[in-house]
Amino acid sequence: PAAYLGRARPLWGTLARELIAGECLEILHTAGPPDTAASLKVIRYKTAKYTVEHPLLIGGVLAGADDDLCSGYRAYGLPLGEAFQLRDDLLGLFGEERVTGKANGDDVRGHRPTALLAEAWRLAGDAQRERMRELLGRPDPDGEGVHELRELMRRLKAPDRVEAMITERVDEALAALHALPLPAAAGTALCALAHSVTHRQY
């Protein structure tokens, strides 16, 4: 109905504005001092809202969801979108290239503000941080720098911390989902989505 289209239209504008804001935040923080809070803010606006929250809201509004249900969708979609990107950050450095279809280490070579890098930086000592400065942002055609940084992150247990962040957000999303008055089929599908986007290998 036209009324539902009218409710959905502002969401498209919000989606576009927030995506642009996320891209700008990433540019501002690229090659800057790694900071977990800043990285999570980039994730929220660049990926989580664009990939999960707003598509879910737009679909819900077009199907006639009321404001309370849309609030529930937000509570489910935002943490799930963040978990999706956190998994992507891990795959971008530790995934198998033949499976992911993209070169490992692009985030490292680009010195992008990922939460994985920020957590490694937070956990590192002075000497480790100095070595990270030397490795980040360089071309590294033979991949040795990426390999060294990957091993350093493993020693610091930064991937474990990001895994914990993913679990926290999936749990938050599922708790919000279980509180929603959804048909069984919709609840099952959204539960499966939460697991598929965060336990993927590509």
Rank of each mutant, 00 (worst) to 15 (best):
A2H: 15
A3M: 13
L5W: 15
G6E: 13
G6M: 10
P10Q: 03
L11K: 09
W12E: 14
I20M: 15
L25F: 08
E26S: 05
T30D: 09
T30W: 07
T36N: 06
L40C: 09
K41N: 05
V42M: 01
I43C: 12
K49Q: 14
E53W: 04
P55I: 00
P55D: 03
G64D: 02
A65Y: 09
A65E: 03
D67C: 00
D67K: 08
D68Y: 08
C70H: 11
R74H: 02
L78Y: 01
E82C: 14
A83D: 02
F84W: 06
F84Q: 03
Q85G: 01
R87A: 00
D89P: 07
L91W: 07
L91R: 00
G92P: 03
E96A: 15
E97Q: 12
K102T: 03
N104K: 05
G105D: 08
D106C: 06
D107W: 05
D107M: 06
D107G: 08
V108R: 03
L116C: 07
L117E: 07
A118D: 02
E119C: 07
G125Y: 01
A127N: 13
A127R: 14
Q128S: 11
E134P: 07
G137K: 01
R138G: 04
R138Q: 11
P139G: 04
P141F: 07
D142K: 03
D142I: 00
E144W: 04
G145N: 11
G145P: 05
H147C: 04
E148F: 07
E151T: 13
E151G: 06
L152S: 09
L156S: 09
P159W: 09
D160K: 03
E163W: 12
M165P: 04
A175I: 03
A176D: 05
A176G: 06
H178L: 12
L180E: 07
L182K: 09
A185Y: 08
G187I: 00
T188M: 11
A189H: 10
L190G: 04
A194I: 10
T198F: 05
H199Y: 03
R200E: 13
